[in-house]
């Protein structure tokens, strides 16, 4: 249930033209929000995205190219939004990009810094820019983290490091901005099948997971729409006392997943 009225309010989502970002954009737009979806490298089929919004009777989204790691792009983006909106109601820091290593030998300082630049820095840069250009922070900010900080994933070293830095920033900023009208939280979903998932883990991992996890996979994998609904709920007014939290979207799997559990589940030894 959404308590806030999002009609004609601005919602900014980085990496908003696919996967979790697009699902989140649709979730807010269904409540009347004017969503600003950013992308990079002309990666979006703008007409197809606009048609999806139109089909659902949503306000047309504004699709803008902006590199989340670029100071200049961020400034231009916020100034563009300011032409139509005095403030941003919700900011979803979704975009993430990092180095996937093949062995500890290719973990280098430069790749770590680039991973941080794309996956950690944007939330701080966007919030600071929004405040500087609009005079106030968004009422809500949601950072998209992942399962990475809590468990080992091969090759995921720098992305996990970027995500945990992102989570810590959310907490630190919450404490630092205690007197401001802003609620910053992070969502940490289990793996979500998106283009980004395939780019990170390769094209063969999804079918492998589906085969190896069997029925359990249905519970392990989270849908983009589920993440979107959680983001909307955090920004919906019913959870305004919640600040600086990292919420896991894992159906409780972080506690219960074990090889024996998966075996027992898939062989009918447990319900």
């Amino acid at each position: 249930m959404i308590f806030n009225d999002y009609r004609n309010k601005a919602v900014l989502i980085t990496g908003g033209t696919a996967g979790i970002g697009l699902a989140t954009g649709l979730a807010f737009a269904r409540h009347g929000a004017r969503v600003y979806l950013t992308h990079r490298w002309a990666s979006a089929d703008e007409q197809a995205i606009k048609s999806r919004f139109e089909d659902e009777g949503c306000p047309e989204p504004v699709i803008l190219e902006a590199d989340a790691s670029s100071r200049e792009d961020t400034l231009n983006l916020i100034r563009e939004i300011r032409k139509s909106h005095a403030s941003i109601e919700a900011f979803i820091s979704n975009v993430s990009f990092g180095h996937i290593s093949k062995s500890p030998r290719d973990l280098d300082r430069r790749s770590l810094l680039i991973s941080l630049k794309y996956s950690t820095w944007p939330i701080l840069d966007y919030l600071k820019t929004i405040k500087a250009e609009m005079g106030k922070y968004p009422r809500y900010a949601v950072a998209m983290s992942s399962k990475g900080p809590d468990s080992y994933h091969f090759g995921y070293d720098f992305i996990a490091a970027s995500k945990i830095a992102l989570e810590i920033l959310c907490r630190q900023l919450t404490a630092a901005l205690i007197h401001e009208d802003i609620r910053i939280n992070a969502l940490a979903p289990n793996p979500v099948f998106t283009q980004s998932f395939e780019a990170t883990f390769g094209p063969d991992f999804k079918p492998y997971l589906e085969t190896q996890l069997g029925q359990y996979g249905r519970w392990y994998i989270i849908l983009p729409e589920e993440v979107a609904r959680a983001a909307l709920a955090l920004c919906g007014g019913g959870m305004d006392a919640m600040k600086g939290q990292v919420l896991k979207l894992d159906r409780g799997c972080c506690f219960s997943e074990s090889l024996y559990r998966i075996y027992a589940f898939n062989t009918g030894k447990c319900d």
């Binding site: 990079r40 490298w41 002309a42 990666s43 190219e65 590199d67 670029s70 990009f97 990092g98 180095h99 996937i100 290719d106 790749s111 680039i114 991973s115």
Partner: peptide
């Protein structure tokens, strides 16, 4: 170069040239 380097090189080049290139072509 690793995959991250390639993104940086291509991205910075496109930015400097002030052009837009569809990702699927890259």
């Amino acid at each position: 170069a690793n995959s991250l380097d390639i993104v940086e090189i291509v991205s910075c080049s496109i930015r400097e040239l002030k052009i837009k290139v569809p990702r699927n072509e890259l």
